[in-house]
Design a protein around this nucleic acid. Structure first.
Length: 634
RNA sequence: GGGGAUGUGGCGGAAUUGGUAGACGCAUCGGACUUAAAAUCCGAAGGCCUUGGCCGUCCGGGUUCGAUUCCCGGCAUCCCUACCA
């Protein structure tokens, strides 16, 4: 994603002479120099610096009106109206350098249109309607010439053809493929001094100053002669002054400018008068390196000490939404790389692992016309849900939480009704962390019910005791009988919990807890098992676990207790239920020892499906040790 | 238009390296307890024919003894971004 955002493209810059404009050529950037013969007009952005001088008197009024209108539109409006192409001819002609001087085919009109952006490339394009759909649209709209310079396949019935094919109508390029034609054209442009190969980036500048109070002040002093110097290291950091009123001002000046005493400083070299810079840095200034400062927040002499960096290393795991992938995370990497080059940090990358969590969505309801109905107008008691107003049956769909749909879930309300542990447990139970998934209010009580059941495993509701007898003593005893079954179940549960941390699918850990609880409820726990179960539950239901932990007689928090280890001796039982297949289809199941040999497995399998095998010839037998047996028959 | 991801019951979702599809939960249905209800506990349950089968992981092909999983080609949905030349 970051690669796309940086948006490296390879192409060429080409200069077009404009009639009547000596010296000032119109420079364009293109990724398709091979299509130059098909450039039948040019378009410049309304903000382009040559618009004024190129425009002829006859066209001046129309062009000025168009430029005016474009500048009044916000970026949003300009892209909003993207469907229809608008533009005005400047009255000027340029010469397409693919053709000889004086060749009528090379005389092409120059237009102004807002589909060309001033902020990308050179703010001007050569329009090749035959190979670019936007140019095709514009040409159709205004009756401009269209020449194909790439031969589309016979089956092609579209408009602009952007695919690969042999060059046509292109003089010395005819017959060449796209890549070869690009290279030849660039070589020729270079030879004639009217163009060169060029790499372009989509990455945009990002303004780094704000006229707000909250933010880091720039450690910069303005001197009387208009120059500026850095605040000396010994005077760092520059801290914000205390201000009564730190709201942004109406005229756009920085709030800090009103802190008159603070602004006054002196030139560190000469002692003459100086003024502090009153702009502050934006929020992302801090977000670009906070993870470093967190390693050593009190260090007074550097961003962080080498010892702190050594100890904490670089960030093991960064969990964030994908919305951060191209802005915050890209710029944090930039900063880190600069700090690496400056010798401040020892690593080239800030984060060892990035994990994008999914987005929580919510159910929304659609009526027959496809309109989304706000949640408060839906009767959810009905099945299927119906509109409260009309009684119409509604289709349940998944949508982003939004104010207009009134399907936003407020965590406070959920915690108020079910408790924080239930809220947390439900979120973990919903599905894998990476997936986006819908919040279903109906499912939440299930998590609450599980916690209540787990509570009763430890606390007898009919007794006055803080804990069921025996659960406070966690001395290890070799389990036997029913306790052995529980021991196996517990270790399998702990194994699944550990696995869930590795895969970030905590839902399977919660499922493991639920399954374990079902067995343990009827058989009971010993103290050691109770202790391990509670410790494993701690990350999932922290308050629940801490309460039980203290009732077990521990002084400290369960969150400081050791993580329960899996004892592999108890992971697997001696026997397993082996599936027997014929031609890949399940035909029987039979209990077999885990240690059974291939022959033993096959014999058990044959016995289990003997009646089905009568009169059939076994062509092949597949035995997967510890797994299954499959007979291929004729 | 570009990029990223995802398609499994009524719903959220399970399923190491290809090896019992549907774990766990919700909703549903049945039972126990109760004067009754709530709560709690126990049980049933993918679909279609009937006592043993057939069909089933978005659709169509392929590889394989065996495909939710691997390969090829489609379709759909979500997120981000966008006249990027």
């Amino acid at each position: 994603m970051q690669r796309e955002w940086i948006g490296r493209t390879e192409g060429a810059e080409i200069d077009f002479k404009v009639e009547g404009q000596e010296g000032a050529a119109l420079r364009v950037y293109t990724t398709r120099p091979d299509t130059l013969f098909g450039a039948t007009f040019m378009v410049v952005a309304p903000e382009h610096s040559l618009v004024g001088s190129m425009t002829t008197d006859a066209q001046r009024a129309a062009v000025e009106a168009y430029v005016q209108a474009a500048s009044a539109k916000s970026d949003l409006e300009r892209t909003d109206l993207a469907k229809e192409k608008t533009g005005v001819w400047t009255g000027a002609y340029a010469h397409n350098p693919a053709f000889e001087e004086g060749d009528e085919r090379g005389r092409i009109p120059v237009w102004v249109a807002d589909y060309v952006l001033a902020s990308y490339g050179t703010g001007a394009i050569m329009a090749v309607p035959g190979q670019d759909q936007r140019d095709w649209d514009f040409a159709s709209e205004f009756g401009l010439n269209i020449v194909r310079t790439v031969e589309p396949p016979a089956s092609f019935d579209g408009e602009a053809f952007t695919g690969a094919g042999p060059a046509i109508n292109s003089g010395f390029l005819d017959g060449l493929g796209v890549d070869e034609a690009k290279a030849r054209m660039i070589a020729q442009l270079v030879e004639r001094g009217v163009g060169q190969a060029k790499v372009n980036y989509r990455l945009r500048d990002w303004l780094f100053s704000r006229q707000r109070y909250w933010g880091e002040p720039f450690p910069v002093l303005h001197l009387e002669d208009g120059s500026h110097v850095r605040v000396p290291d010994g005077d760092l950091p520059v801290t914000l002054p205390e201000m009564e009123d730190f709201k942004p001002s109406d005229d756009g000046s920085a709030p800090l400018a009103r802190a008159k005493d603070w602004v006054v400083a002196s030139d560190p070299s000469g002692g003459g008068p100086a003024r502090r810079d009153t702009d502050t840095m934006p929020g992302w200034a801090g977000s670009c390196w906070y993870y470093l400062r967190f390693m050593d927040p009190k260090c007074a002499t550097a961003p962080l000490s080498p010892e702190a960096e050594e100890y904490w290393g670089n960030v093991d795991l960064y969990i964030g939404g994908t919305e951060h992938a191209v802005l915050h995370l890209l710029y944090a990497r930039f900063w880190h790389k600069v700090l690496f080059d400056a010798g401040v940090v020892k690593t080239k990358e800030p984060f060892q692992r990035l994990f994008n969590q999914g987005m929580l969505t919510a159910f929304a309801y659609k009526d027959g016309t496809g309109r989304l109905v706000p949640a408060d107008e839906v009767n959810l008691e009905a099945d299927p849900p119906v509109s409260k107003a009309t009684g119409e049956r509604l289709e349940q769909v998944i949508a982003k939480m939004s104010k207009t749909l009134k399907n936003v879930v407020n965590p406070d309300d959920v915690c108020e009704k079910y408790g924080v542990d239930t809220f947390r447990l439900y979120e973990m139970f919903m599905g894998p962390l990476a997936d986006s998934k819908p919040w279903n209010p109906r499912d939440v009580p299930g998590s609450r019910k599980f916690l209540e059941r787990a509570w009763r495993l430890f606390v007898d509701p009919d007794a006055d005791e803080p804990l069921r007898p025996g659960l406070g003593d966690d001395s290890g005893v070799t389990p036997e009988g029913p306790a052995l079954d529980v021991e196996r179940a517990l270790n399998q549960c702990l194994q699944r919990v550990d696995d869930s941390f590795k895969a970030f699918n905590f839902n399977t850990a919660v499922a493991a807890f639920m399954e374990f609880l079902k067995g343990a409820s009827s058989k009971g726990l010993n103290g050691s098992q109770a202790s391990r179960f509670v410790r494993a539950m701690a990350p999932f239901a922290p308050h629940f676990a801490d309460e039980i932990w203290s009732r077990m007689g521990h002084a400290g928090s369960v969150h400081h207790a050791a993580w329960p280890a899996v004892d592999e001796r108890f992971l697997e039982s001696d026997e397993f239920e082996m599936p027997v297949q014929i031609l890949g289809k399940l035909r029987a199941k039979v209990m077999v020892s885990r240690e059974a040999s291939r022959d033993e497995m096959e014999a058990a399998a044959r016995a289990a499906v003997a009646d089905r095998m009568e009169g059939k010839e076994v062509v092949k037998t597949i035995v997967v040790p510890g797994r299954l047996v499959n007979f291929v028959v004729k």
